[in-house]
Design a protein around this nucleic acid. Structure first.
Lengths: 194, 194
DNA sequence: TTGTCTATCTATAAGTT
DNA sequence: TAACTTATAGATAGACA
Protein backbone atom coordinates (compact mmCIF):
# COMPACT_ATOMS: atom_id res chain seq x y z
CA UNK A 1 0.00 0.00 0.00
CA UNK A 2 2.38 2.64 -1.05
CA UNK A 3 4.35 3.95 -3.94
CA UNK A 4 5.45 0.44 -4.70
CA UNK A 5 4.42 -3.07 -3.92
CA UNK A 6 6.64 -4.91 -1.47
CA UNK A 7 7.28 -8.58 -1.01
CA UNK A 8 6.36 -10.01 2.38
CA UNK A 9 9.77 -10.99 3.71
CA UNK A 10 12.12 -9.57 6.30
CA UNK A 11 13.16 -6.02 5.33
CA UNK A 12 16.93 -6.00 5.08
CA UNK A 13 17.58 -2.30 5.47
CA UNK A 14 17.46 -1.62 9.21
CA UNK A 15 16.18 1.93 8.87
CA UNK A 16 13.38 0.95 6.51
CA UNK A 17 12.53 -1.94 8.79
CA UNK A 18 12.25 0.36 11.78
CA UNK A 19 10.12 2.90 9.89
CA UNK A 20 7.84 0.21 8.52
CA UNK A 21 7.57 -1.37 11.96
CA UNK A 22 6.47 1.89 13.46
CA UNK A 23 3.87 2.57 10.76
CA UNK A 24 2.46 -0.91 10.52
CA UNK A 25 2.41 -1.38 14.28
CA UNK A 26 0.24 1.68 14.75
CA UNK A 27 -2.00 0.49 11.91
CA UNK A 28 -2.32 -2.93 13.49
CA UNK A 29 -3.22 -1.55 16.90
CA UNK A 30 -5.75 0.78 15.34
CA UNK A 31 -7.43 -2.09 13.53
CA UNK A 32 -7.40 -4.26 16.64
CA UNK A 33 -9.21 -1.55 18.57
CA UNK A 34 -11.70 -1.01 15.75
CA UNK A 35 -12.49 -4.72 15.60
CA UNK A 36 -13.11 -4.81 19.35
CA UNK A 37 -15.48 -1.86 19.16
CA UNK A 38 -17.29 -2.57 15.90
CA UNK A 39 -17.88 -6.25 16.54
CA UNK A 40 -18.10 -6.35 20.30
CA UNK A 41 -15.16 -8.74 20.48
CA UNK A 42 -12.40 -9.29 23.01
CA UNK A 43 -9.04 -8.52 21.44
CA UNK A 44 -5.58 -8.94 22.95
CA UNK A 45 -2.49 -7.92 21.03
CA UNK A 46 1.14 -8.05 22.09
CA UNK A 47 4.14 -7.04 19.97
CA UNK A 48 7.84 -7.16 20.65
CA UNK A 49 10.05 -5.22 18.30
CA UNK A 50 13.26 -6.89 17.20
CA UNK A 51 15.06 -4.54 19.58
CA UNK A 52 13.01 -5.92 22.45
CA UNK A 53 10.53 -3.12 23.05
CA UNK A 54 7.07 -4.20 24.18
CA UNK A 55 3.72 -2.89 22.93
CA UNK A 56 0.38 -4.30 23.95
CA UNK A 57 -3.33 -3.78 23.84
CA UNK A 58 -6.25 -5.50 25.49
CA UNK A 59 -9.83 -4.48 24.87
CA UNK A 60 -12.33 -3.74 27.64
CA UNK A 61 -9.72 -2.42 30.13
CA UNK A 62 -9.38 -5.85 31.68
CA UNK A 63 -6.91 -8.61 31.67
CA UNK A 64 -7.41 -11.70 29.62
CA UNK A 65 -9.86 -13.92 31.39
CA UNK A 66 -11.95 -11.49 33.36
CA UNK A 67 -15.07 -12.04 31.30
CA UNK A 68 -15.55 -15.41 29.75
CA UNK A 69 -19.17 -16.15 30.50
CA UNK A 70 -19.60 -17.69 27.08
CA UNK A 71 -16.56 -19.97 27.20
CA UNK A 72 -16.84 -23.63 27.98
CA UNK A 73 -14.59 -25.60 30.31
CA UNK A 74 -12.57 -27.19 27.51
CA UNK A 75 -11.63 -23.81 26.01
CA UNK A 76 -10.70 -22.42 29.39
CA UNK A 77 -8.59 -25.48 30.15
CA UNK A 78 -6.83 -24.96 26.84
CA UNK A 79 -6.17 -21.31 27.58
CA UNK A 80 -4.99 -22.16 31.08
CA UNK A 81 -2.54 -24.71 29.71
CA UNK A 82 -1.14 -22.26 27.18
CA UNK A 83 -0.75 -19.51 29.72
CA UNK A 84 0.86 -21.88 32.16
CA UNK A 85 3.40 -22.94 29.59
CA UNK A 86 4.11 -19.34 28.64
CA UNK A 87 4.50 -18.52 32.29
CA UNK A 88 6.95 -21.36 32.79
CA UNK A 89 8.97 -20.23 29.79
CA UNK A 90 9.07 -16.64 30.90
CA UNK A 91 10.03 -17.62 34.44
CA UNK A 92 12.82 -19.83 33.13
CA UNK A 93 14.10 -17.10 30.85
CA UNK A 94 13.96 -14.54 33.64
CA UNK A 95 15.70 -16.83 36.11
CA UNK A 96 18.40 -17.65 33.59
CA UNK A 97 18.89 -13.95 32.90
CA UNK A 98 19.28 -13.22 36.59
CA UNK A 99 21.66 -16.12 37.10
CA UNK A 100 23.75 -14.90 34.18
CA UNK A 101 23.84 -11.42 35.58
CA UNK A 102 24.80 -12.62 39.04
CA UNK A 103 27.62 -14.67 37.56
CA UNK A 104 28.74 -11.69 35.53
CA UNK A 105 28.65 -9.50 38.60
CA UNK A 106 30.69 -12.03 40.53
CA UNK A 107 33.22 -12.30 37.73
CA UNK A 108 33.62 -8.55 37.48
CA UNK A 109 33.65 -8.26 41.24
CA UNK A 110 36.60 -10.58 41.44
CA UNK A 111 38.34 -8.66 38.64
CA UNK A 112 37.83 -5.49 40.59
CA UNK A 113 39.13 -7.10 43.70
CA UNK A 114 42.31 -8.14 41.91
CA UNK A 115 42.62 -4.66 40.47
CA UNK A 116 42.20 -3.20 43.94
CA UNK A 117 44.94 -5.42 45.32
CA UNK A 118 47.26 -4.26 42.55
CA UNK A 119 46.35 -0.64 43.17
CA UNK A 120 46.94 -1.19 46.82
CA UNK A 121 50.45 -2.46 46.13
CA UNK A 122 51.08 0.44 43.80
CA UNK A 123 49.90 2.90 46.43
CA UNK A 124 52.11 1.23 48.96
CA UNK A 125 55.10 1.56 46.65
CA UNK A 126 54.38 5.19 45.86
CA UNK A 127 53.83 5.85 49.51
CA UNK A 128 57.20 4.36 50.46
CA UNK A 129 58.80 6.30 47.63
CA UNK A 130 57.11 9.40 48.90
CA UNK A 131 58.41 8.91 52.42
CA UNK A 132 61.85 8.37 51.00
CA UNK A 133 61.57 11.57 48.94
CA UNK A 134 60.28 13.53 51.84
CA UNK A 135 63.16 12.31 53.92
CA UNK A 136 65.61 13.45 51.25
CA UNK A 137 63.86 16.80 50.87
CA UNK A 138 63.93 17.26 54.60
CA UNK A 139 67.63 16.43 54.83
CA UNK A 140 68.40 18.77 51.94
CA UNK A 141 66.24 21.51 53.42
CA UNK A 142 67.91 21.13 56.76
CA UNK A 143 71.22 21.71 55.08
CA UNK A 144 70.18 24.76 52.98
CA UNK A 145 67.12 26.43 54.64
CA UNK A 146 66.70 24.98 58.11
CA UNK A 147 63.62 27.16 58.92
CA UNK A 148 61.32 26.52 55.86
CA UNK A 149 60.39 22.84 56.09
CA UNK A 150 56.72 22.84 54.95
CA UNK A 151 56.30 19.62 52.93
CA UNK A 152 53.47 17.82 54.76
CA UNK A 153 52.39 14.20 54.73
CA UNK A 154 49.49 13.70 52.30
CA UNK A 155 46.22 11.87 52.99
CA UNK A 156 48.01 8.72 51.88
CA UNK A 157 49.36 8.69 55.38
CA UNK A 158 46.81 6.07 56.49
CA UNK A 159 46.68 2.36 57.18
CA UNK A 160 46.99 0.25 54.04
CA UNK A 161 43.88 -1.75 54.98
CA UNK A 162 41.74 1.37 54.96
CA UNK A 163 42.85 2.32 51.48
CA UNK A 164 41.84 -1.09 50.15
CA UNK A 165 38.41 -1.03 51.75
CA UNK A 166 37.67 2.43 50.40
CA UNK A 167 38.48 1.34 46.88
CA UNK A 168 36.22 -1.69 47.11
CA UNK A 169 33.23 0.25 48.34
CA UNK A 170 33.51 3.17 45.97
CA UNK A 171 30.34 4.02 43.99
CA UNK A 172 30.38 3.10 40.32
CA UNK A 173 30.00 5.94 37.84
CA UNK A 174 26.74 5.72 35.92
CA UNK A 175 27.24 3.26 33.09
CA UNK A 176 25.04 2.64 30.06
CA UNK A 177 27.26 0.78 27.68
CA UNK A 178 26.78 -1.73 24.91
CA UNK A 179 27.23 -5.21 26.33
CA UNK A 180 29.47 -6.28 23.47
CA UNK A 181 31.95 -3.50 24.21
CA UNK A 182 34.91 -4.70 26.20
CA UNK A 183 35.01 -2.79 29.44
CA UNK A 184 38.34 -1.33 30.47
CA UNK A 185 39.56 -2.26 33.89
CA UNK A 186 38.06 0.11 36.43
CA UNK A 187 34.72 0.26 34.59
CA UNK A 188 33.52 -3.22 35.34
CA UNK A 189 29.95 -2.60 36.49
CA UNK A 190 26.74 -4.18 35.31
CA UNK A 191 23.16 -2.96 35.49
CA UNK A 192 20.49 -5.47 36.47
CA UNK A 193 17.56 -4.00 34.59
CA UNK A 194 17.14 -1.38 31.89
CA UNK B 1 -12.79 1.20 3.25
CA UNK B 2 -15.80 0.27 1.32
CA UNK B 3 -18.76 1.68 -0.47
CA UNK B 4 -19.34 3.97 2.45
CA UNK B 5 -17.52 5.25 5.44
CA UNK B 6 -18.62 3.83 8.77
CA UNK B 7 -18.47 5.25 12.26
CA UNK B 8 -16.37 3.30 14.74
CA UNK B 9 -19.01 2.11 17.19
CA UNK B 10 -20.68 -1.21 17.89
CA UNK B 11 -22.58 -2.41 14.80
CA UNK B 12 -26.19 -2.88 15.81
CA UNK B 13 -27.33 -5.24 13.09
CA UNK B 14 -26.22 -8.69 14.20
CA UNK B 15 -25.74 -10.03 10.69
CA UNK B 16 -23.65 -7.08 9.57
CA UNK B 17 -21.66 -7.33 12.77
CA UNK B 18 -20.91 -10.97 12.13
CA UNK B 19 -19.93 -10.35 8.50
CA UNK B 20 -17.74 -7.41 9.41
CA UNK B 21 -16.17 -9.43 12.23
CA UNK B 22 -15.26 -12.18 9.83
CA UNK B 23 -13.75 -9.83 7.25
CA UNK B 24 -11.88 -7.57 9.60
CA UNK B 25 -10.63 -10.45 11.71
CA UNK B 26 -8.99 -12.08 8.72
CA UNK B 27 -7.54 -8.70 7.75
CA UNK B 28 -6.16 -8.19 11.24
CA UNK B 29 -4.53 -11.60 11.37
CA UNK B 30 -3.02 -11.06 7.94
CA UNK B 31 -1.50 -7.77 9.03
CA UNK B 32 -0.23 -9.26 12.27
CA UNK B 33 1.58 -11.97 10.31
CA UNK B 34 3.00 -9.45 7.85
CA UNK B 35 4.33 -7.27 10.65
CA UNK B 36 6.05 -10.25 12.23
CA UNK B 37 7.72 -11.20 8.97
CA UNK B 38 8.56 -7.78 7.54
CA UNK B 39 9.92 -6.31 10.73
CA UNK B 40 11.29 -9.37 12.47
CA UNK B 41 8.98 -8.82 15.44
CA UNK B 42 7.25 -11.14 17.88
CA UNK B 43 3.49 -10.80 17.52
CA UNK B 44 0.80 -12.46 19.58
CA UNK B 45 -2.87 -11.91 18.80
CA UNK B 46 -5.94 -13.37 20.47
CA UNK B 47 -9.55 -12.63 19.58
CA UNK B 48 -12.80 -13.78 21.10
CA UNK B 49 -15.93 -13.18 19.09
CA UNK B 50 -18.96 -11.95 20.97
CA UNK B 51 -20.34 -15.47 20.65
CA UNK B 52 -17.30 -16.82 22.46
CA UNK B 53 -15.31 -18.34 19.64
CA UNK B 54 -11.54 -18.13 19.99
CA UNK B 55 -9.00 -17.17 17.30
CA UNK B 56 -5.33 -16.73 17.94
CA UNK B 57 -1.95 -16.27 16.32
CA UNK B 58 1.58 -16.26 17.64
CA UNK B 59 4.56 -15.59 15.42
CA UNK B 60 7.59 -17.86 15.19
CA UNK B 61 5.68 -21.13 15.86
CA UNK B 62 6.40 -20.87 19.58
CA UNK B 63 4.56 -19.90 22.66
CA UNK B 64 4.98 -16.50 24.18
CA UNK B 65 8.20 -16.43 26.09
CA UNK B 66 10.30 -18.96 24.27
CA UNK B 67 12.67 -16.39 22.84
CA UNK B 68 13.24 -13.28 24.81
CA UNK B 69 16.98 -12.88 24.63
CA UNK B 70 16.61 -9.14 24.26
CA UNK B 71 14.24 -8.61 27.17
CA UNK B 72 15.42 -7.38 30.48
CA UNK B 73 14.42 -8.74 33.87
CA UNK B 74 11.96 -5.94 34.63
CA UNK B 75 9.99 -6.55 31.42
CA UNK B 76 9.89 -10.28 32.03
CA UNK B 77 8.73 -9.74 35.60
CA UNK B 78 5.98 -7.52 34.25
CA UNK B 79 4.91 -10.13 31.72
CA UNK B 80 5.05 -12.86 34.35
CA UNK B 81 2.80 -10.85 36.65
CA UNK B 82 0.26 -10.21 33.91
CA UNK B 83 0.18 -13.83 32.84
CA UNK B 84 -0.14 -14.96 36.42
CA UNK B 85 -3.11 -12.70 36.96
CA UNK B 86 -4.73 -13.89 33.73
CA UNK B 87 -4.10 -17.45 34.78
CA UNK B 88 -5.73 -16.88 38.15
CA UNK B 89 -8.76 -15.30 36.51
CA UNK B 90 -9.14 -18.09 34.01
CA UNK B 91 -8.77 -20.73 36.70
CA UNK B 92 -11.39 -19.05 38.83
CA UNK B 93 -13.78 -18.79 35.93
CA UNK B 94 -13.19 -22.41 34.99
CA UNK B 95 -13.63 -23.63 38.54
CA UNK B 96 -16.84 -21.67 38.92
CA UNK B 97 -18.12 -23.10 35.67
CA UNK B 98 -17.38 -26.63 36.81
CA UNK B 99 -18.96 -26.04 40.22
CA UNK B 100 -22.07 -24.72 38.49
CA UNK B 101 -22.22 -27.71 36.23
CA UNK B 102 -21.75 -30.14 39.10
CA UNK B 103 -24.57 -28.47 40.99
CA UNK B 104 -26.73 -28.61 37.90
CA UNK B 105 -25.92 -32.28 37.44
CA UNK B 106 -26.80 -32.97 41.06
CA UNK B 107 -30.06 -31.11 40.74
CA UNK B 108 -31.04 -33.00 37.61
CA UNK B 109 -29.80 -36.25 39.12
CA UNK B 110 -32.13 -35.85 42.04
CA UNK B 111 -34.99 -35.01 39.67
CA UNK B 112 -34.24 -38.19 37.76
CA UNK B 113 -34.13 -40.16 40.95
CA UNK B 114 -37.58 -38.91 41.93
CA UNK B 115 -38.82 -39.71 38.46
CA UNK B 116 -37.38 -43.20 38.78
CA UNK B 117 -39.13 -43.78 42.06
CA UNK B 118 -42.40 -42.73 40.47
CA UNK B 119 -41.80 -44.99 37.51
CA UNK B 120 -40.94 -47.77 39.87
CA UNK B 121 -44.24 -47.37 41.64
CA UNK B 122 -46.04 -47.25 38.31
CA UNK B 123 -44.28 -50.41 37.18
CA UNK B 124 -45.21 -52.07 40.41
CA UNK B 125 -48.83 -51.16 39.90
CA UNK B 126 -48.85 -52.34 36.31
CA UNK B 127 -47.09 -55.51 37.35
CA UNK B 128 -49.68 -56.28 40.01
CA UNK B 129 -52.42 -55.53 37.49
CA UNK B 130 -50.69 -57.84 35.05
CA UNK B 131 -50.55 -60.68 37.56
CA UNK B 132 -54.18 -60.11 38.33
CA UNK B 133 -55.05 -60.21 34.60
CA UNK B 134 -52.98 -63.32 34.04
CA UNK B 135 -54.70 -64.99 36.92
CA UNK B 136 -58.10 -64.13 35.41
CA UNK B 137 -57.01 -65.30 31.96
CA UNK B 138 -55.71 -68.53 33.43
CA UNK B 139 -58.92 -69.16 35.34
CA UNK B 140 -60.97 -68.38 32.20
CA UNK B 141 -58.73 -70.62 30.06
CA UNK B 142 -58.96 -73.44 32.55
CA UNK B 143 -62.71 -73.28 32.23
CA UNK B 144 -62.83 -73.12 28.38
CA UNK B 145 -59.54 -74.65 26.99
CA UNK B 146 -57.79 -76.50 29.77
CA UNK B 147 -54.85 -77.60 27.49
CA UNK B 148 -53.73 -74.26 25.84
CA UNK B 149 -52.44 -72.14 28.71
CA UNK B 150 -49.50 -70.28 27.06
CA UNK B 151 -49.54 -66.78 28.51
CA UNK B 152 -46.10 -66.43 30.07
CA UNK B 153 -44.75 -64.07 32.71
CA UNK B 154 -42.98 -61.14 31.06
CA UNK B 155 -39.55 -59.82 31.94
CA UNK B 156 -41.23 -57.59 34.48
CA UNK B 157 -41.22 -60.65 36.64
CA UNK B 158 -38.15 -59.47 38.57
CA UNK B 159 -37.33 -57.93 41.90
CA UNK B 160 -38.46 -54.31 42.23
CA UNK B 161 -35.01 -53.20 43.34
CA UNK B 162 -33.49 -54.43 40.08
CA UNK B 163 -35.90 -52.44 37.99
CA UNK B 164 -35.01 -49.27 39.82
CA UNK B 165 -31.28 -49.78 39.46
CA UNK B 166 -31.58 -50.43 35.75
CA UNK B 167 -33.44 -47.22 35.22
CA UNK B 168 -30.90 -45.19 37.11
CA UNK B 169 -27.95 -46.52 35.16
CA UNK B 170 -29.46 -46.19 31.71
CA UNK B 171 -27.35 -44.38 29.10
CA UNK B 172 -28.46 -40.88 28.17
CA UNK B 173 -29.35 -40.28 24.55
CA UNK B 174 -26.91 -37.92 22.84
CA UNK B 175 -27.94 -34.39 23.75
CA UNK B 176 -26.83 -31.09 22.22
CA UNK B 177 -29.42 -28.65 23.31
CA UNK B 178 -29.56 -24.94 23.94
CA UNK B 179 -29.04 -24.29 27.63
CA UNK B 180 -31.95 -21.88 27.81
CA UNK B 181 -34.40 -24.50 26.62
CA UNK B 182 -36.34 -26.09 29.46
CA UNK B 183 -35.69 -29.83 29.43
CA UNK B 184 -38.69 -32.13 29.79
CA UNK B 185 -38.49 -34.70 32.52
CA UNK B 186 -36.66 -37.74 31.23
CA UNK B 187 -34.16 -35.61 29.25
CA UNK B 188 -32.32 -34.11 32.15
CA UNK B 189 -28.73 -34.59 31.05
CA UNK B 190 -25.95 -32.03 30.92
CA UNK B 191 -22.79 -31.94 28.89
CA UNK B 192 -19.58 -30.83 30.60
CA UNK B 193 -17.79 -29.43 27.57
CA UNK B 194 -18.79 -28.44 24.07
C1' DT C 1 -24.39 -18.82 5.81
C1' DT C 2 -20.16 -18.17 3.01
C1' DG C 3 -18.19 -16.41 -0.97
C1' DT C 4 -17.66 -12.99 -4.91
C1' DC C 5 -17.72 -8.38 -6.83
C1' DT C 6 -16.38 -3.60 -7.00
C1' DA C 7 -16.63 1.24 -5.73
C1' DT C 8 -14.67 3.52 -2.28
C1' DC C 9 -12.05 4.28 1.71
C1' DT C 10 -7.69 3.50 4.30
C1' DA C 11 -2.90 2.28 4.98
C1' DT C 12 1.44 2.92 3.74
C1' DA C 13 6.12 2.92 0.65
C1' DA C 14 8.91 6.02 -0.96
C1' DG C 15 10.12 10.55 -1.27
C1' DT C 16 10.75 15.18 0.83
C1' DT C 17 11.74 18.47 4.48
C1' DT D 1 15.83 11.04 13.33
C1' DA D 2 11.08 12.25 13.08
C1' DA D 3 7.30 14.62 10.60
C1' DC D 4 4.98 15.63 6.36
C1' DT D 5 3.37 14.48 1.42
C1' DT D 6 1.49 11.83 -2.16
C1' DA D 7 0.82 8.11 -5.36
C1' DT D 8 -0.52 3.64 -5.09
C1' DA D 9 -1.55 -0.93 -3.02
C1' DG D 10 -4.62 -3.01 -0.05
C1' DA D 11 -8.88 -3.48 2.84
C1' DT D 12 -13.55 -3.60 3.07
C1' DA D 13 -18.94 -1.96 3.07
C1' DG D 14 -22.65 -2.97 0.74
C1' DA D 15 -24.83 -5.62 -2.70
C1' DC D 16 -25.75 -9.89 -4.52
C1' DA D 17 -25.32 -15.00 -5.48
Amino acid sequence: MGRGKIEIKRIDNATNRQVTFSKRRSGLFKKAKELAILCDAEVGLIVFSSTGRLYDFASARQLLGQQFSGRDVKDLQNLEDKLEMSLRNIRMKKDQLMIDQIQELNRKGSLMHRENLELHNKVNLVYQENIELQRKVYEQGANEHPASSTVKHSSLDTENEDVLVNLELSQPRSVQRDKSETPSIGETFVQISG
